[in-house]
């Protein structure tokens, strides 16, 4: 079996204690929540932190508060199982519940947290490999080397941001609350991300994501479509989150389309959104928007299935997500 490297496990009982520990340990420490992303990476030596600051014993991070009318606040320590099953969340933001429920497997969702899902490491099938494998092929710049094996000559890393819930959070207009030694700040969730496979988060390593704030539902219609090989286990190799508002006569008054797993951060398709606003959502309108939505996506060949297939599926999945959110037909959510 692959063994974990040695590390010190710190289990603070309050947020304040956790913040203090992170300040004290500096870059030698990492945050761990459910560990479903971090521990496998540590076994493969992508990370060898001297200490882990665990968030599991901090009760302040496990709340779900508010209503569909006022908006919801979800603690970062809430598990994906809870996010996918709590009626409060599932009724108000069905796409979020669906995305959380589409993460991996039931066992993993019982451990994995929503905060961890928003901070999950970017992925690349040259990187998510054992130490021996990476040594054999030659280390890449995301860990231990100085080249990119997918895009040779590239100055940057193109590892794929593969969270299921992040695109939905962006589409919903959520914001996140960060707390660290420098204090507390609230930023829109899209501001958490940066299109860089290595430094994919804008937050400081010692900042804890404490909660997610979702705006009032206010007629928002949402859908999330996930492309993956199998109905379980698999990370998205394309995710499409949409949120729409329709006037009484069916005219679209607000639209957000966010693609996941195509770049190193969630990608909002603003040109496509513009094509929807002020329109009645007919098949033709949706088709045009779907084509436009797929255009900015620049996936590389570093996930499961071929690059051309993922590109080709982007408009198909976008159209299906839009149709579902608009209530157009019986297309099943994927």
């Amino acid at each position: 079996m692959l063994r974990l490297p040695p590390f010190e496990f710190l289990a603070p009982r309050s947020l304040a204690e956790a913040v203090a520990l992170l300040a004290e340990r500096g870059s030698a420490a990492m945050i761990v929540a459910g560990g479903t992303d971090l521990y496998p990476n540590m076994k493969r030596r992508q990370f060898e932190p001297a200490a882990l600051v665990s968030l599991r014993s901090i009760p302040e991070l496990r709340h779900v508060e508010g209503t569909a009318q006022t908006g919801l606040t979800i603690g970062s320590g809430v598990t994906l199982t809870q996010v996918s099953q709590q009626p409060l969340i599932a009724n108000a933001y069905p796409a979020l519940a669906h995305a959380a429920g589409a993460v991996s497997t039931a066992q993993l969702r019982n451990m994995g947290t929503i905060g961890g899902n928003l901070c999950v490491d970017t992925r690349c099938n040259y990187y998510n490999q054992t130490y021996h494998w990476r040594k054999s092929i030659g280390f890449c710049m995301k860990k231990g080397g100085d080249v990119c094996l997918v895009a040779s000559g590239s100055e940057r890393c193109w590892a794929v941001f593969s969270s299921d819930t992040a695109p939905v959070m962006v589409a919903l207009g959520a914001s996140v609350c960060l707390e660290g030694p420098q204090g507390k700040r609230v930023i829109p969730v899209e501001a958490l991300y940066r299109d860089d496979g290595i430094a994919y988060l804008t937050k400081q390593p010692d900042e804890i994501l404490t909660e997610i704030r979702l705006p009032p539902v206010d007629g928002l219609r949402t859908a999330y479509w996930k492309l993956r090989r199998r109905g379980a286990f698999d990370f998205p190799i394309l995710g499409v989150a949409v949120a729409l508002k329709l006037a009484e006569d069916g005219t679209c008054t607000a639209a957000r389309i966010v693609l996941g797993a195509v770049e190193s951060s969630p990608v909002e398709a603003q040109a496509a959104e513009a094509l929807l606003i002020g329109q009645k959502l007919t098949r033709e309108v949706i088709e045009a928007a779907a084509q436009a939505a797929a255009r900015p996506a620049r996936p590389l060949d570093n996930t499961d299935m071929s690059l051309s297939y993922r590109k080709r599926m982007a408009p198909v999945y976008t159209a299906r997500a839009l149709a579902q959110a608009a209530g157009l037909n019986g297309d099943q959510a994927a």
Binding site: I137, R229, F233
Partner: peptide, 20 residues
């Protein structure tokens, strides 16, 4: 790929689940 096994793990070597 590049002369070595592309996906030597149970996550990346795709085998159907009960859902398939």
């Amino acid at each position: 790929r590049r002369q070595q096994h592309k996906s030597p793990s149970m996550l990346d070597y795709k085998s159907p689940t009960t859902l398939e």
